[in-house]
Design a protein around this nucleic acid. Sequence first.
DNA 1: ATACGCTCCGTACCATGGTACGGAGTCAAG
DNA 2: CTTGACTCCGTACCATGGTACGGAGCGTAT
Lengths: 127, 127
Amino acid sequence: MDMTIGKFAATGKVGVETIRFYQRKGLLRTPKRLEGGRRYGSEDVRRLLFIKQAQSAGFTLEEIRELLHLDASDDRERAREAARARLAALNERIAELNKAREALERLIGECASGKKGPCPILASFGL
Amino acid sequence: MDMTIGKFAATGKVGVETIRFYQRKGLLRTPKRLEGGRRYGSEDVRRLLFIKQAQSAGFTLEEIRELLHLDASDDRERAREAARARLAALNERIAELNKAREALERLIGECASGKKGPCPILASFGL
DNA sequence: ATACGCTCCGTACCATGGTACGGAGTCAAG
DNA sequence: CTTGACTCCGTACCATGGTACGGAGCGTAT
């Protein structure tokens, strides 16, 4: 558990440039230079994986920066608030996507029934 | 049902610049100039609303452009394929968001239980 | 007829989340 | 002791989805 930036990036399946980008954005620390290079460990990997998961959860990099900060702090109240806000947004988004899914399923069904003419794409979305 | 771009934009709750942007991108037609100005009708509104809904369904503008094209064409096969591809991506995304939701719910729970110290934000995400 | 509000159009600028480039340094193997 | 593979760093560039700016024209009310 002591790697160069290249190894680190590979471990998280991102590019080296992405690591540096996250460092510039304050999402990852920039280790001290020692013995000619900077070295990364398992805590860095953990943060990097969190960034990726949080991103897929719909957090922006800025929000993730705050969450990482909060993770290191003792402010349970703020952390819970942030999580609740995100959860609400997430639920809304999921509902939205479910609606879209229904529209697509409707579309596929109507489109499959062998008739001639164009598929009613807009109509499938309630328009 | 015959309006200027300002009215049209207002109807769809977007800015005039956004309409023009969509026109440049080929998502909306640019009506002929007549009597000094271009005029928009209910079919334009329908398209605009579709763009907004499709966008919230996770389609990119480029994909929406294709859908609009498909809607006007008779190529049921292609339309169905496009819809199926989108549906698969959508289902994946929904699953991802559901996972994230569980993580957030876990976090809120663990964060609420009155203990001291930081909330285990990263840990709630399985890290 | 002149000002007000809108349209038209090109072009520039913005934020987000990266990705690439190029010079300079370091380290290990041949 | 040179070559190759990597690092470091600054800066530039990219796509997406807009948003703003500024000059010119046009329609209506005063």
